[in-house]
Write a protein that binds this DNA or RNA. Structure first.
Lengths: 129, 129
DNA sequence: CTGCATCCTCCCCGATACTG
DNA sequence: CAGTATCGGGGAGGATGCAG
């Protein structure tokens, strides 16, 4: 009768369904925030995004775009010319995320210095003994 | 002259310093949000947190707490009794994070259903061809 | 130009055992 | 009670090659 394991499984299941956790898992992803921000000003082509997010690998960019498309946050438009042209744009749902991203940016700009100071102090203390 | 590699390194360095990215990396961490929420109502003991976040391993809980302490978001208080008692509490800086967490939760509750619908539709379309 | 498949590496995290 | 140290599996992610 592994009550412990049961409780853990139940909690894991709960976490997997928790909307806030799902959202955090999404936007916490390294490339998601960057892609969303890159699309904030309007649609962009795949290659354009790749050039903007210089250090993203092709694999991760595609994977990120697919996930965002799957979640209805961005729309993918294929223009069957030669060569093919693909545009990505924020959907209304994706745009509704922008204020939240701005709030996050604002907090970061307001308080990240404090965090850095705390971090430096903690490391100094650890180094000193 | 690998201009490409240079650009990537520069961009990586930029990202590493970007406050918003640092914040996202923090709160995007699976256990950080849960610990912060668990401490929102007041100080808690280590064992108490472990029991609340049922499925967290000792290692990850300690690691998460250390990181949050290092960043000045939570305070660690040791009471040298026998056995030792350790309390964790949000600092003012950590508390300033709560409105942001609430905003995230709000967005999630307002829009996560849409995301789930989009996801189901996408998967259905993929399955159907 | 856009994107998928494969291989391969690294590191995150869980499990376990031990300490003050 | 509150950690630290160590080992090993698994998954994330980069590099490369190929396709439409």
């Amino acid at each position: 009768m592994p009550t412990d394991a049961d409780a853990r499984a139940a909690y894991d299941a709960y976490l997997a369904e928790c909307p806030a956790r799902q959202l955090l898992a999404r936007i916490g992803d390294k490339w998601v925030s960057l892609v969303v921000n890159a699309l904030a000003d309007g649609p962009r082509r795949y290659g354009d995004l790749a050039r903007t997010l210089v250090s993203v690998s092709q694999k991760m960019l595609t994977q990120t775009l697919r996930n965002l498309e799957r979640d209805g946050l961005i729309a993918r438009t294929v223009t069957p010319s030669v060569p093919v042209r693909v545009d990505y744009a924020l959907t209304p749902l994706g745009e509704s995320l922008l204020p939240l991203m701005r709030a996050i940016k604002t907090w970061a700009e307001d308080h990240m210095d404090d965090v850095l100071v705390a971090r430096a102090g903690y490391d100094a203390g650890a180094a000193a003994g």
